[in-house]
Amino acid sequence: MPNALLTFEGVHTHIGPYHILHGVDFAVPEGEVTMLLGRNGAGKTTALRSLMGLWKPNQGRITFAGRDISKLPTPEIARLGIAYVPETMGIFAALTVRENLLLATGPAGFQQDRLDTVLALFPVLGQKFAQAAGGLSGGQKQMLAISRAIIEERRLLVVDEPTKGLAPAVILHLIEAFQKLKAARTTILLVEQNFEMARALGDTVAVMEDGRIVHRGDMAALAADTGLQERLLGLSLAAHQ
């Protein structure tokens, strides 16, 4: 088994008076795609926000490349090389597509080859490069959010439900894009409800329920076991289609 780049060890998180995460443990191996699955309200988004320091864990450790980051402020966590695509996408509507991307680059600005790669992945962004991002469609916004996460070399890509609310054709496009990233051995932590996408991309999987991890294993094994799917996610692959 490859080295874990990111680990959660007994992470508890409260939001205001509510105790949301009750000891979350899982690991993201380097160079692989790790799926974080679970029903609505299981705590997936909370886990990612805890990782980014947007909600501070009250207990437990989150390590990145061997270092405890659970007490670091958000900008310091991001600077370790973590790109985050939130569930709400975090697009700056008043800024142009170009400016949205530029924000994620280093002080030197765009590296031409990376920009070309990204625009080749999502050509529509090139066409709308100088337009306000607020005018993009939902799918285009998601493409922009993902592009922003990969416009610079990062060690870890964290994406929260990229397919939420998107049309099937757009989802297929996104799956393709993620497959290219996977082929380039990018380390990815991906939250999904869309099992199709999970099966297509995941190497390993962790399943959450009520703020805890209730299952860990190979994605392929889960994809093959309909009973387990039904028990963990409340739906089988067949029912989903």
Binding site: M52, L54, P73, T74, P75, A78, R79, Y84, P86, G90, F92, A93, A94, L95, E99, L103, A104, R148
Partner: peptide
């Protein structure tokens, strides 16, 4: 300008 719109996201992009 980005921070005025969404401070959290700007921080998540590594800006203090």
């Amino acid at each position: 300008r980005a921070g005025v719109e969404n401070r959290e996201m700007v921080e998540a992009l590594g800006y203090r």
